[in-house]
């Protein structure tokens, strides 16, 4: 409705101003990043800081090139991505199924409440050694850690999202003779879509946290492994490199979820 025939002069100046504003924000953000890298590099060169323990951008770049040439960069990144993927799928998928079950049965929900509260507060990393004993020292305990760390939060926030649905909307469906399954698929699920997506955002991040924690405890490859290894042999270039790649992964995940959000919530605007 805003895109009427001819925008007024005021509208044009306003839009112009907004464009300039966006560009200024973006440029400033970029400058901060560049300034940070530059200061880091120069300070290390001038020995204001010790590059042996802080590393420096040029060394990180060199390390990346080295790992790229021997191919191990992709091995570590790939291992972490695959573990995060499975941790996320199992944690979020399992959490979703549990949440549906708890919405379906008030009885089950009542029963499980204290367990959920305690499990939620428990630091999952404490279970790491148990996972290693039970699941061995391959990828399984790492995926298990990612699952554990995301599933409880997923269950709790999804159940409360499901239960937040306006009871009068449910009453409307009941007046049409809807079954419980229909109430779930036609009203509860679509109205919880915003909750679902914000849960997704949290749990995908938590899966990555779980994977790195798991790799700290037990692993032969992955970015978490690279961080631990790098710090043990005092190759801080490796540590910094892994952290930078993790930041890039987090950014990609964030934009991925935002993209899905835009697609799914078109009706909201």
């Amino acid at each position: 409705m805003s895109a009427s025939a001819k925008p007024s002069l005021e509208r044009k100046t306003y839009l112009q101003k907004m464009r300039i504003h966006r560009v200024v924000v973006l440029l400033t953000q970029l400058m901060i990043l560049i300034a940070f890298l530059l200061i880091w590099e120069l300070a290390a060169n001038a020995r204001f800081i010790d590059p042996f323990i802080t590393s420096q951008p040029s060394r990180v770049l060199a390390a990346i090139i080295r790992l790229h040439q021997d191919g191990s960069l992709y091995l570590h990144v790939w291992v972490t991505i695959v573990e995060t993927f499975w941790g996320f799928i199992l944690g979020t998928g399992g959490g979703f199924l549990c949440a549906v079950l708890l919405w379906w049965s008030r009885f089950l929900h009542e029963i499980s409440e204290p367990y959920l509260v305690v499990l939620n507060a428990l630091p999952k990393v404490a279970l790491g050694p148990l996972l290693i004993v039970w699941l061995g020292n391959g990828s399984a305990p790492i995926i298990g850690m990612a699952l554990l760390i995301s599933i409880i939060v997923t269950i709790i926030s999804l159940v409360s999202g499901f239960q937040d649905v306006d009871p009068d909307k449910i009453k409307l469906l009941l007046s049409f003779g809807a079954t419980r399954l229909q109430i779930f698929t036609k009203v509860v699920l679509p109205s919880s879509l915003p909750t679902l997506i914000s849960t997704l955002k949290v749990s995908v991040g938590l899966s990555l946290v779980g994977v790195i924690m798991g790799e700290f405890l037990v692993s032969k490859a992955g970015l978490g492994y690279l961080i631990v290894y790098g710090s043990q042999v005092f190759k801080l270039d490796l540590v910094m490199l892994s952290i930078i790649i993790l930041a890039a992964m987090a950014a990609i995940i964030y934009f991925g979820v935002s993209f899905v959000e835009k697609k799914l919530l078109r009706w909201q605007k």
């Binding site: 306006d166 009068d168 909307k169 009453k171 409307l172 036609k186 009203v187 679509p190 109205s191 009706w267 909201q268």
Partner: peptide
Amino acid sequence: LQRDYLLE
């Protein structure tokens, strides 16, 4: 009902 409860 009191409100229209059209599904958005």
